[in-house]
Design a binder for these strands. Sequence first.
DNA 1: TTCGGTAGTCATGTTTTTTTGACTTCTTGC
DNA 2: GCAAGAAGTCAAAAAAACATGACTACCGAA
Lengths: 103, 103
Amino acid sequence: MTTEIDTTGAEQCPAQGLLKTLSGKWKPEIFRLATEGPLRFNALLRRLPGSSRQSLAVALREMEESGLLTKTLVRQKPLHIEYALSARGASLVAVFRTLENLL
Amino acid sequence: MTTEIDTTGAEQCPAQGLLKTLSGKWKPEIFRLATEGPLRFNALLRRLPGSSRQSLAVALREMEESGLLTKTLVRQKPLHIEYALSARGASLVAVFRTLENLL
DNA sequence: TTCGGTAGTCATGTTTTTTTGACTTCTTGC
DNA sequence: GCAAGAAGTCAAAAAAACATGACTACCGAA
């Protein structure tokens, strides 16, 4: 393996970053499901037939890191984690709705 | 090759289609360059170091099919083809600008 | 009629992304 | 302690995306 220089930070436009955080086989659908309410890992896995634990874990981590989702430990009945739309994520929903009127 | 059932049309939300037509290694940058003016195949190839004729051909075709770009034969000096933003593509630019204020 | 410039296609190989299946950690209930 | 359900991790295989190099087709000028 040769040493690579990372030039991915040299983006020409802020929207490119967003496209990246929403690109991938499952992220768009995860985002849409998140607009319907908070998500739990295993339940999400079942709602995305053909997906895998691995890709979901990666997608959720990246979407959280980019500030689209929040990850919350819920101290209740069966102690679990909830992924929900962040404020930033919610503001995106509005933009997407605008988008739908143009398409 | 096994027979596959195409369920890609069963999208839950119009924005998903858009994300698809803008996902891939080069499409976002092609889109951005298109906002600066019409593009020609070989010139575009040179402006995207590391890209290939093949991926560009595919990306341009898909972006045209999805109505983001128009493809025009220009009957002039060195008879060429121009890829330009369609009206629909241009309206997206406005949305992206809105987006940038949220990020 | 051959040449240079246009815009591609095609087969192949490499690289990246995703899936698969086994394994881990934590917590609660029995 | 042991099992069961939560949310993962890891290595390896399979699939998809992309790059490379050779080739095609079209037009206009020499």
